[in-house]
Design a protein around this nucleic acid. Structure first.
Lengths: 142, 142
DNA sequence: CGACATTAAATGCGCTTGCATTAGATGTGC
DNA sequence: GCACATCTAATGCAAGCGCATTTAATGTCG
């Protein structure tokens, strides 16, 4: 169904609903495809899962140590899942955890040199995968 | 960064990449939000998980019995995951499985009356959740 | 016909996730 | 100061997923 047909139908409620459902199917399809490809490519080439990469990416993007809490707002993971991702990254020496002096409940996560270079290696792979999947139908900037 | 700035930058490669990454973040965010809400609402109100609902929805949409294989192409699940979803649905008496006469390796999945009415109950809930999440920034029809 | 590759669906297994809870640190009110 | 609510991060636990494998049926080729 084309945009013209939708808007020309005269039934805005149906149009909205159809558009919403189409959007959901788009999101479902691309998410599945991208996640699957990222898991394979990042895993095979760089030994990283999508969540591990995303956490490294957020830290590199901010270019400073972050609190677990801050990361939690940016990555789409529950607090417990994030806690475990950080634990795996620490085990792999890609980040280090340190207690926060100001609030001793908090935990800072610092990226290590090894973490930084691993991220730099993996970044082109991630971009290539995403470009492969989204280049044809990106969302025109919200 | 605005669309104008992007297009005005003169570097189409960077623009493309930024658009692709923005699209990925859009997909990640909406997928997480929608999945979480669907899991909660469909689960609490109708005793269905998102995968269970999706499978019922595909069968209702086609309005006939489908082979596992056919469902596999439409649902974003691995063959093994789908096999288990169908097993759960059968346990809940929402579908029934039957061997295919033509190819006795194959399995047909039929929706039951109970499955049909459960789907009908759940559909408005699903639509409400999706509208809540996508009404503001749907994708203008690809 | 008979051995071997192929296909469909189910199952073993390990991993990641979210929910609920816990342990420890910090804030609040009397 | 002290009891109690709140907050942060970690952990026990069960559920769902994908990969690899298995079981059974079907094709294929000599």
């Amino acid at each position: 169904m084309s945009l013209h047909e939708i808007y020309g139908s005269g039934n805005l409620r149906d149009m909205d609903e159809q558009l919403v459902v189409d959007t959901w199917h788009y999101v479902l399809g691309r998410h599945a495809k991208a996640m699957c490809a990222l898991e394979r490519e990042l895993g095979d080439r760089h030994g990283l899962g999508p969540s591990e990469f995303e956490v490294l990416d957020r830290i590199v993007h901010h270019d400073r140590k972050l609190r677990i809490q801050e990361l939690c707002e940016e990555v789409h993971l529950s607090q417990s899942a994030l806690s475990r991702v950080v634990a795996r990254l620490e085990k792999a020496s890609l980040v280090s955890r340190g207690v926060c002096d100001a609030d001793r409940r908090g935990v800072f996560v610092c990226i290590t040199d090894e973490g930084r270079s691993r991220h730099a290696e993996a970044l082109p792979t991630q971009r290539a995968v995403l470009t492969e999947i989204f280049a044809d139908t990106p969302i025109p900037a919200h």
